[in-house]
């Protein structure tokens, strides 16, 4: 999913970070959002809804809809779309 080559934007930053999502270890690029890092790892489903248990992922991309909310440590409802992934970050799906 990563756009390694781009005709206009040139080469990609190759600095990596390691993080976990629901306990599994993944690699992301330094400076990117949690949502981008997960999508690059082909992960689209970030959580399941409280009532109907439906899958949800990133939607608005600007921090308004809160669909992409995740837990980081004990911090609740962190928006994956506008929060930078950092080395060693422990990301968990959030119910509800």
């Amino acid at each position: 999913m990563r756009i390694e080559q781009h005709p206009i934007l040139g080469p990609l930053n190759n600095e990596t970070v390691t993080f976990t999502f629901n306990g599994d270890v993944y690699e992301g690029r330094k400076g990117e959002s949690i949502a981008a890092a997960l999508l690059a790892n082909e992960i689209r489903t970030l959580r399941y809804t409280a009532q109907k248990n439906e899958p949800r992922g990133i939607y608005c991309g600007i921090g308004h809809c809160y669909e992409c909310r995740v837990m980081i440590g004990t911090k609740r409802s962190v928006r994956a779309c506008i929060t930078e992934v950092v080395e060693g970050m422990k990301i968990q799906s959030q119910g509800g």
């Binding site: 990563r2 756009i3 990609l12 981008a36 991309g61």
Partner: peptide, 13 residues
Amino acid sequence: GAAQVLNNYERVR
């Protein structure tokens, strides 16, 4: 707009 940022800024299709 989310697709745009992912694609052009984050460089993830």
